[in-house]
Nucleic acid binder design. Structure first.
Length: 631
DNA sequence: TATAGGGTAAACAGGA
DNA sequence: ATCCTGTTTACCCTAT
């Protein structure tokens, strides 16, 4: 296939050999201690503050749960004295896998982490003290302390039972005592009843904590640092409850019924509405605990919604199978924000009519709301929008594509750094385009369209994009009639990443643990995730990992995608272009080497993660496989 | 400790 | 003159 020679590229060999860019620039760069998360210097709106506080509260709740679940709550007391800069380390020691890097990095600033840590530590310190040394000084705690201990024990037993159940089902490859189970995974693997039970556990423990506080043992006093965390300090002044004080006391209240408080895990007896209101305002005020409980409740609701969506989809599939066309596509199954996603819309237009049986390799399968986001708080919990994903309909069939398809809304709305390298993102943007070529500005637009994270600090990431385009040989600039466009040299992209890490499963496991560790630089994690994904082609490696870690890895999974794309380059997965297009343009940076013997099998990670994250739904196990079909 | 890969910052050139 | 695009260099961070 001949190409017009006009595509001859003109690599402007800028004679920029002066090397004037001296160390003087470093003095300017010295102000970016934050590294990749240097965006925290932006202004903070009240909404951000609230968001921040919610994140903190949820983290606190998660830490609490996981500490109880894993029996890790035995930190040395001197951790309390750690300086703020040591916070991530100590948190890692306590619960290395439970906090997603995005959350840690994007949401919590070091002082906030420190405050949160102190809260956790102080609480755990008290737990240890009360459990192991019930000395005379604490005797005044009396029955409350005893109840607290019993609740702790019960909670531990419950958590262990949950974990055992999950392990028995093969849903969580957790080794007892080795790591924490992210609440996300637990939640997804549990039925609502379990969640409710967990609810009570959280509430009971926190109630005990509250009781201790009221006994004059405020946790903050145990901290050597005076900057103990107080949610109210950072929370905006908003009404605590929809049912404010001036509301009619005689009116019914969704949180009050049968003489008791319906706040999750509370069940406090209230004789009348007035007493309930009093109780509500005193016990369930806007603090970290209530916020955390609210967050958990949001997740419960979301879980139910997901279940509903899956059942709805199943019903639709059944009806389709029985040739009973559903009257209307269910609104819930409609993407909520597809208008801003040109790619999805485009794929919609290529698809088959809704409700009709699809060929197995159809590019248009029903839109399926699915599991949580990429092991971070999903968009629904952040913005009240459930994660919408399309079943493996991405034409590239790449994990990054599927990840983006799955969490499209999440990344669009949540200010979370995508766990991909710039190179992989650029590549995806280009490959997603109809002609597999984009101008620089179109790449910019794709970034801003797809990721809320890239809607600010434009100078930074745009520079990074340009830097990557120029730096990596896999990106080829092609002179077009309208200007220059960028394309992807897939061969170079494959060569880009030497599979050096062929280590043992232990190595991989450690790496996976690192991926779930929040103190890691997000960008570095992305790089790590990408560079290590090939290891996970082996299903045996998966068994020793936690679901969250796999999720984390899953989102960064982009390497194998190239293989898949090559496999499908002349198949159904790449409808837009012929494979020859890669060879059309002139490779200006360097002549590509011959195609390597890259014949790795399609990764099974995706399916495994699906299995981990959503038990009881067998069909989702092979969602990532290109030939998935509805049954 | 050296190295590699990725991110960030910045200087610089050329063109519109 | 200004902005955009593109290249290049330097440095940092982290894991291997």
């Amino acid at each position: 296939m001949m190409v017009e020679s006009a595509t001859e590229t003109i690599r402007t060999t800028s004679s920029n050999q002066n090397g004037v860019s001296s160390l003087s620039s470093q003095s300017e760069g010295g102000g970016r201690e934050g590294g990749s998360n240097g965006d925290t210097n932006g202004e903070i709106s009240p909404v951000d503050l609230l968001h921040l506080q919610q994140q903190q509260a949820l983290q606190a709740a998660r830490q609490f749960l996981l500490q109880q679940a894993t029996g890790l709550s035995s930190p040395s007391s001197n951790e309390v004295k750690q300086s703020p800069v040591q916070v991530p380390v100590s948190m890692a020691m306590m619960t290395p896998q439970m906090i997603t890097p995005q959350q840690m990095q994007q949401i919590l600033s070091p002082p906030q982490l420190q405050a949160l840590l102190q809260q956790q530590q102080a609480l755990m310190l008290q737990q240890v003290t009360y459990t192991h040394t019930p000395s005379h000084s604490q005797q005044q705690l009396g029955s409350k302390q005893l109840a607290f201990q019993q609740q702790l024990i019960q909670m531990q037993q419950l958590q262990q039972q949950h974990i055992l159940n999950l392990q028995r089902q093969g849903l969580v490859g957790l080794q007892p005592g080795q790591g924490a189970v992210p609440i996300q995974s637990l939640q997804q693997a549990m039925c609502p009843t379990d969640l409710q039970q967990l609810w009570k556990d959280v509430a009971s423990v926190q109630s005990a904590e509250e009781a201790i506080k009221h006994e004059g043992l405020d946790l903050s006093t145990n901290s050597s640092n005076s900057t103990s965390y107080s949610a109210s300090k950072v929370s905006p002044q908003i009404p605590h409850h929809p049912f404010s004080k001036h509301t009619e006391h005689t009116a019914s209240h969704p949180l009050y019924g049968h003489g008791e408080c319906k706040w999750p895990g509370c069940e406090a007896l209230c004789e009348d509405m007035g007493q309930f209101i009093k109780h509500l305002n005193s016990e369930h005020a806007l603090d970290d605990r209530s916020t955390a409980q609210c967050r958990v409740q949001m997740q419960v609701v979301q879980q139910l919604e997901i279940q509903l969506a899956k059942e709805s989809e199943r019903l639709q599939a059944m009806m389709t199978h029985l040739h009973m066309r559903p009257s209307e596509p269910k609104p819930f199954n409609q993407p909520l924000n597809l208008a801003s996603s040109g790619s999805l819309l485009k794929r919609d237009s290529e698809g088959f009519p809704e409700g009709l049986p699809h060929p197995p390799t159809s590019a248009a399968t029903p839109i399926t709301p699915l599991r949580q986001g990429p092991s971070v708080i999903s968009s629904s919990s952040l913005h009240g929008v459930g994660p919408i994903r399309r079943r493996n309909s991405d034409k590239f069939c790449t994990p990054i594509a599927s990840e983006l398809a799955q969490n499209c809304e999440f990344y669009k709305n949540a200010d979370v750094r995508p766990p991909f390298t710039y190179a992989s993102l650029i590549r995806h943007a280009i490959l997603e385009s109809p002609d597999r070529q984009l101008t620089l500005n179109e790449i910019y637009n794709w970034f801003t369209r797809m990721f809320a994270y890239f809607r600010r600090n434009t100078a930074t990431w745009k520079n990074a994009v340009r830097h990557n385009l120029s730096l990596h040989k896999c990106f080829v600039r092609v002179e077009n009639v309208k200007g220059a466009v960028w394309t992807v040299d897939e061969v170079e992209y494959q060569k880009r990443r030497p599979p050096k890490m062929t280590g043992s499963p232990t190595l991989v496991k450690n790496m996976i643990s690192g991926l779930g560790f929040g103190s890691l630089n997000a960008s570095y994690q992305a790089a790590l995730a990408e560079s290590s994904l090939s290891l996970l082609n082996s299903p045996t490696l998966v068994n020793n990992s936690t679901g969250a870690s796999l999720n984390m890895l899953h989102v960064g999974h982009d390497d194998v995608s190239s293989t898949v794309e090559q496999v499908n380059s002349n198949g159904s997965c790449s409808p837009g272009l012929s494979p020859q297009q890669y060879g059309h343009h002139v490779h200006v940076k360097e002549e590509p080497a011959e195609m390597e013997e890259d014949s790795r099998p399609v990764s099974l990670i995706a399916s495994v993660t699906q299995n981990l994250s959503m038990p009881g739904d067998e069909r989702d196990m092979d969602e990532e496989l290109p030939t998935e079909e509805l049954e």
